[in-house]
Write a protein that binds this DNA or RNA. Sequence first.
DNA 1: CGCCAGGTTGTCG
DNA 2: CGACAACATGGC
Length: 270
Amino acid sequence: MIVFEQITDLDLAQTLDCGQAFRWREQPDGSFAGVAFGKSVTVRLDGGDLVIENAGEADRALWRRYFDLDRDYGLIRGELSALHPVLKEASEYAAGIRVLRQEPYEALCTFIISQNNNIKRIKGIVQRLCEGFGEPLPDGEFAFPTARAMSALTVEELAPLRAGFRAKYLFDAARKVDSGEVDLALCETAPYEDARAELMKIKGVGVKVADCTLLFGMNRVEAFPMDVWMKRAMASLFPGLSPESFGANAGIAQQYIFHYSRMHPEIFQN
DNA sequence: CGCCAGGTTGTCG
DNA sequence: CGACAACATGGC
């Protein structure tokens, strides 16, 4: 068990079930079970402490990084709140969201799956992908499959995922990442536009999937994924503003606005 | 049953 | 360039 004492700006339900990660399941007791970096754990918040069950001290740095605990979200929220009154409202409403630092390849694949899809079904496809092709873990869970493992398959073998037309995109991603034709490590450090272009060499990866991969898999918080919800939100809540208006932490603003919008669909009636 | 889902691609004008 | 259907599948 690992304990991070007195963690602020963290709500597990907001962070783990806001559509940035697809492998966390809420338990009856309010904790969340999930797998990241090949480690199956249960996490909970206990009196302000973040508790990671089924993890050893050796993985402390891994989980500190995964939950982005070294970033001062309170400070960022203050800066964003000063920019626009509605952004202030959204950031206060979603104040418990942190941008997870997921495995880059997992983020890439899950957001390829996400296109023209709904979160419930995305989770099912991801689960079948892990069970079918990921390394089994001691407790019966499965790691997210590697690009190497997936590139060794055929598109036909991906059929049981029921991923539909996205299967060929997953296969192309696996093949290009495994071969090095697409360099994910490069995307972590390259200038934003270059990183985006690198990811878009994959069939089925457009600007939105690329931005989600950069934001959720590489902690590129300048990325601002524009999905249907964000288009609606920008048009009706922030007319005339562009993602650049939100500065270097636009991606964090995006998460606040996305969650706020999804929880208040009535705002966008007619 | 029909519309829609954290989009992208291919095709036409 | 901008618009728009097609894409697989299933949730609601």
